[in-house]
């Protein structure tokens, strides 16, 4: 009797301690995720001098000459992100297929080879990429777009390969064989069985590359001589040059919205496929 009592009391203590152990995560969540987002919205919707609520910061970015700059920066960001995503998937798809097929990839050495660059910091890799491109006669100053996209694709390719590779591993081989046996041409087999089965992989590869490329700007800065300005770079400029937190925050809100949109798209897509 006495023993069970202490035991249950101990259980209560354990439960209490467990609760407390969650505290650091709660604090982390509030300090580093919720608070910063609230701050972004606060700066974006208030006047820097008076602190009163205003939509003037949005207006400042979208009126007259400023709107040209704003649309250009957003357009370039979307352009770089979309181009990188499409090229990454086009390159990653066959690679993932080959890697997932044990005929070609007896041990997983090949997979590691493709993932190897991820283990080295991307800033260092980008400096090396610049020197390499110059060595091959592609001067980033003269071909900023080509060089930037090469750098971006190189950096984000593993993010596209990995989800595709994972889906390809689970491909239902019998379906492919059945399609071939029933007279489908290789092209038909590919589009009627393999592609539909790998849609979840394509969708997650697309988000895995699109979202980080949207907000990244270090690679394009280095490989375009800072001539391609993306949203991230513009936010940095606005902070460094005279602490224009309000305008920088408007950009951050826009970026959050764009990323939010791409998440919504991803969910829509995968749900549809899942329901099928």
């Amino acid at each position: 009797m006495e023993a069970t009592k202490t035991l249950s009391r101990n259980k209560g203590v354990v439960r209490e301690t467990r609760k407390w152990l969650c505290m650091p995560y709660g604090v982390f969540l509030i300090l580093f995720i919720i608070l910063p987002i609230l701050l972004i919205f606060y700066y974006a919707f208030t006047d820097a001098r008076t602190g009163a609520f205003t939509l003037g910061n949005f207006a400042a970015l979208f009126e007259g000459d400023s709107s040209v700059t704003t649309f250009k920066v957003i357009g370039q960001s979307l352009g770089v992100a979309a181009l990188t995503t499409v090229i990454c998937i086009l390159i990653a798809y066959p690679i993932a297929y080959i890697l997932a097929n044990s005929k070609w990839n007896k041990n997983i050495v090949l997979v590691y080879l493709f993932l190897l660059p991820m283990w080295i910091n991307f800033v260092i890799r980008t400096i090396a990429t610049k020197q390499l491109l110059i060595f091959f006669g592609l001067d980033p100053a003269l071909h900023p777009w080509v060089c930037s996209i090469i750098g971006m694709v190189y950096n984000y390719l593993p993010f596209a390969i990995l989800p595709l590779y994972n889906t390809m591993l689970k491909l239902d081989k019998s379906q492919i064989e059945a399609a071939a046996d029933l007279g489908a041409s290789p092209v038909q087999v590919f589009f009627k069985t393999i592609v539909p089965m790998t849609v979840p992989g394509i969708v997650s590869a697309a988000t895995m590359t699109f979202m980080p490329t949207m907000s990244s700007y270090v690679i394009t800065d280095a490989l375009s001589g800072r001539t391609i300005t993306l949203i991230g770079g513009q936010i940095e400029n606005m902070f460094l040059n005279g602490a224009q937190q309000d305008l920088a925050s408007v950009y951050a809100v826009i970026m959050l919205a764009l990323i939010g949109l791409s998440v919504v798209f991803e969910n829509l897509f995968s749900e549809k496929k899942g329901a099928r």
Partner: peptide, 12 residues
């Protein structure tokens, strides 16, 4: 000045 500058750096 900063406004002009931010427009310049994005104008390449």
């Amino acid at each position: 000045l900063y406004k002009m500058w931010n427009e310049f750096t994005a104008s390449f």
